[in-house]
Design a protein around this nucleic acid. Structure first.
Lengths: 251, 251
DNA sequence: CCTGTTTTTGCGTGTTCTTGCCGATTTTAC
DNA sequence: GTAAAATCGGCAAGAACACGCAAAAACAGG
C-alpha cells in the first residue's frame, strides 16, 4: 500500500462516513496508529480535513470552527493586554482606546467583573456585547476609518464631560523626551483629552514603538503612569522613561 | 464518538431546538453528564452558546462576525434593504437604525455614492469602514446590548442637533391604528426623535411585524413615509395603512 | 552495482487529553 | 425551609499523542 494511496482512502472513508477514528483506520489499513496519525496530521495541514483528538472530521463550513477563535494572531499583544488587566478593579470606569491591543484587552476583560467601559471604537463596543456585567458607553463623533474610532469636536465634548479611573491605550509612538505622540491630528486631540480626564493612563506598546516620534503631541511622559511592553525593549530608552516617573512593566 | 463531533452535534441540536438540557444530551449522546457539562462549558467559553444552569441557550443576537456570511441567511431582508436603496440620492445625509435589515442596507450601500451616514449602531459603523465615499458619524450613548445600539439622553441630545434626509429603520411592530411601536422604552425614545429629525422615514419590516403592537410608542402611521414589506403581507392591514398616507412597497 | 542519503514505518518512552466517578457545594424547585 | 438537581473540583484509568530512534525501503549518483 502506497502512502498516497492510503491517504486517499482515508479521505474517501471520511467523505463516506463523515468521521474517521485513528484506531479504526490503523486496523482497517493494516498499519500502525502512529502512521495513521501522521497521515491525518499531514492531511490536516493541507486543509483536507479537520484533525481532532481521536480522528478527523470533514471541513464542513456549516459548523463554525471554534478552534481558530482561540488562535492568537498576535500573542505579544495578547500578553500586554493580559498584563494590563492587573490594573483593573471591579466597579471602575475605564476608557478603552481603539487599536488591536485594546481589542485584545476588551476580549480578555473578566466576564464576572462589574465594569463601566467607555470606548470611541465601535468594534470594541460590539466585542463587549456579550459581556453581561459590563456597562458599555459608546463615544460618538465622526467616524475616522483609519483608526476605526470616533474623533472630532463631538467626541471631545463628550469625553470632557466624563472622568475615568484608567485610560488604556496602545502606543503609536513613545519617546523619552518628546513623550506620547500620534499619527493623526484628530486622533491625537481625542487622546490628549482622554489622558486629561483619566486618573491613570496605561500605555501598551511593542518595543518597536519606543523611541519613535509622530507628528502630533498627545502627552508628556510624566502625564502617563504605566507602560506595558516586551522584555526585548531597549534598556536605554526604558531607563530614560523610568527617570520620568513612568512605571514600566515587561512581559 | 469524537469529542469535536459531539460538540458539533450539541451546537446543531441547540440551533435546531433553541435550547438544550445537559441531562438530555448525556442520554442522547451516550456519555456522562459530566462530559456534557464540560462540553457546554467549553462551548460557552468560546462564545458559541450561552451556558445556563441545566443546559445552554443560543446567543441572543447572532453577531455576524463582521463577515459577510449572512448574505444567504435572510434573502427577504436583503430584498427589502435593496428596495430601500432606491430612495437614496447622492449627497444625502441618512440615519441608519440598528437591526439586521439595516445592516443589510449598510452592506448594500453603493460604493460609489457619496453619502453621510449617521448611526447609533457600532456594528453598522464597523461595516461601513470600507465604504470610502461615505462619511460616517457614530452616535454615542449608553450601549444597549439587546438592540446593539446606543440609547439614552446622550444619544437623544446628539440626534436632536442633527437633521436627516432619510431615516431607515427596521420595524419592531407596526399597526394601522396604533402606529409604530418598539419593544424597549429607551430604544423607542431614540427612534421617536429619529423620526422627528428626518424628512422622510422608511420602514423595512417583514409581514410578521405588521399588525403587531409593542409597549412603547414611536410614531403614528402618518408620521412615516414608506413601508417596505413582502408581497405576502396581509392586504387588509396594508389597505388600512395606505388610507393613512403610508406609501407601501412590496418586494 | 555500490554507496550514501532520504523517506517511510513501527516501536518504546513519557506526556497530554479525555472521561467517569465521588464528595462537597451551589442553585433551583416546591 | 428542605429536597432534588446541577455544578464544581479533584482524582485516576485509559486513550491518544508527541518525540526520538532505528530498521527497512526507496532513491540518487557515480
Amino acid at each position: 500500500m502506497l502512502l498516497a494511496e492510503r491517504q486517499s482512502l482515508i479521505l474517501k472513508e471520511l467523505n463516506d462516513k463523515g468521521r474517521v477514528y485513528a484506531a479504526d483506520l490503523a486496523l482497517q489499513l493494516g498499519v500502525s496508529e502512529d502512521t495513521v496519525r501522521r497521515d491525518l496530521n499531514r492531511l490536516g495541514e493541507l486543509q483536507l480535513l479537520r484533525r481532532v483528538h481521536g480522528g478527523a472530521l470533514p471541513l464542513q463550513l456549516d459548523v463554525p470552527d471554534y478552534a481558530d477563535r482561540l488562535e492568537l494572531k498576535h500573542p505579544d499583544k495578547q500578553k500586554r493586554a493580559t498584563a494590563a488587566l492587573s490594573y483593573l478593579q471591579a466597579g471602575q470606569t475605564i476608557l478603552l482606546d481603539s487599536g488591536e491591543t485594546c481589542l485584545y484587552l476588551a476580549k480578555s476583560l473578566p466576564r464576572d467583573m462589574r465594569l463601566t467601559v467607555v470606548t470611541a471604537c465601535p468594534l470594541i463596543a460590539c466585542e463587549l456585547m456579550h459581556h453581561d456585567k459590563a456597562d458599555v458607553i459608546v463615544v460618538g463623533g465622526s467616524f475616522f476609518k483609519p483608526a476605526l474610532r470616533s474623533v472630532g469636536a463631538v467626541t471631545c465634548n463628550m469625553l470632557r464631560k466624563m472622568r475615568f479611573d484608567i485610560y488604556f491605550t496602545g502606543a503609536c509612538a513613545l519617546h523619552p523626551e518628546r513623550g506620547f505622540t500620534a499619527k493623526y491630528m484628530e486622533e491625537a486631540e481625542v487622546m490628549r483629552i482622554s489622558v486629561e480626564q483619566s486618573d491613570r493612563t496605561v500605555v501598551m506598546g511593542g518595543p518597536d514603538r519606543l523611541g519613535l516620534i509622530a507628528n502630533h503631541q498627545v502627552a508628556g511622559i510624566r502625564e502617563l503612569d504605566v507602560l506595558i511592553t516586551d522584555k526585548s525593549a531597549d534598556p536605554t530608552v526604558l531607563q530614560a522613561m523610568r527617570k520620568r516617573e513612568l512605571q514600566i512593566v515587561l512581559v
